[in-house]
Design a protein around this nucleic acid. Sequence first.
RNA 1: GGAGAGGUGCCAGAGUGGUCGAAUGGGCUCGCCUGGAAAGCGAGUGUACCGUGAAAGCGGUACCGAGGGUUCGAAUCCCUCCCUCUCCGCCA
Length: 422
Amino acid sequence: MLDISFIRTNPELVKTGMLNKGEKDASAVDAVIAKDEEWRALVTELDQLRAESNAKAKQIGQLMGQGKKEEAQALIRETGDSKDKIKELEDTISKVSEERDNLLYSIPNVPDASVPVGKTDEENVIHKTWGEPAGQEWRLPHWDIASEKKWIDFERGSKVTGAGFPFYVDKMARLQRALINWFLNEAVEYGYTELQAPYFVNEDSARGTGQIPDKEDMMYTIPRDGFFTIPTAEVPVTNFHRDEIFAQDDLPVYYTAYTPCWRREAGSYGKEVRGLNRLHQFDKVELVKIVHPDESNQELETLREYAESLLEKLKLPYRTLLMCTGDMGFTQTKKYDLEVWSPGQQRWLEVSSCSNFGSYQARRMQLRFRNDKGKTEILHTLNGSGLALPRIVASILETYQTEAGDIRVPNVLQSFMGTEII
RNA sequence: GGAGAGGUGCCAGAGUGGUCGAAUGGGCUCGCCUGGAAAGCGAGUGUACCGUGAAAGCGGUACCGAGGGUUCGAAUCCCUCCCUCUCCGCCA
């Protein structure tokens, strides 16, 4: 969520950002300011009442201590009214603050000034392209390669679990393992601390990173225990330090974690979900940064460059898009998508999304540091994939296939695969 | 899963209805002492919110695992939940 005092002092900026992000109207901004004013007035009133009642209780205590029972009794009789009033005010306040918070949750993060204004993905800006996208020619889409080689078993996955839960068989299982290892090794070498995270999170964590209330339907739930299966490692990893206060010297903090990711992906269909394009369960190595507010924009650039370097080392042609305001998502201030070329499908596939969340997530999580003046201040969080596996696997199969039907193994993966060709 | 014991500030740990935001010790910060350091001595050391102020600050409220309740008054009593530890069971 945004800082309410920031909204109060910059209402027009927030409204513009909201409309640019494609919200229908920005009335929530004025509404939240009004609701907050109401809340503050009530809190002031309640605090005064409580102060009076505390003073009385203290006095009663003193009288009792001195054995002046009669006087104490008289005072106790006086307290009835204010007690009811306090109770009533407390109920009103909890209602009002809930309304205020709901409004606050409905206001998206303000896009950074450097983000292009636009409505749809057509207005995203191509920030960079790398490599020569190969033509179709004799190249097959990865699902044909995989089924011919019996490397990915979608049918048995459907039988055992459901659509979107494939088995990876033999060389494909090994390729996945190779990628996970290589991604983690690269990240650790770069300076990320490796974490192994829980695959289920509780409601507080889902709220901390903004899956609740915004994107609740993307997650699978375990209702009996109140858990959500993680849609990305971002959720447990960013929540790792929830409610903590960092010393300034400990910043920045970099984490990497491999986890499976589960997404319900309700409403997806057709070529979008063909093969490995979109799955309900997939593997991903995630990168998370927790940084000083002044550094987050620069940190986003280095995060993107790091993710790009992985594709370059894999020698997979890609392009980087700077997402426009309308296509970038609710909680981000700025976002880059990395798309790898799929020669078998002749289309780009998103394999990494690098985002700066500013203070939006950190405020929900009360993730803070102590600044030069010794005051606590909200940190900034970022994350990006480094990288998501299935589409990388798809792109490798399609890019590295030979006309004879074999698959060459990218150089950086050969030591993990134990071979140069599969 | 069963039985029991617990969850207090940065840490350890006292506190079983009133003057407790919380003893004491350790840590940390600053000052004194020293050629410098250690030791010693002195002072300080939570978070959030509301009000006020340009700010430093000042006044107030809340927080002793979380949420409810009893009471004029709750860290302390009651209820629910979560977590930790010990023993038993189960188990990779």
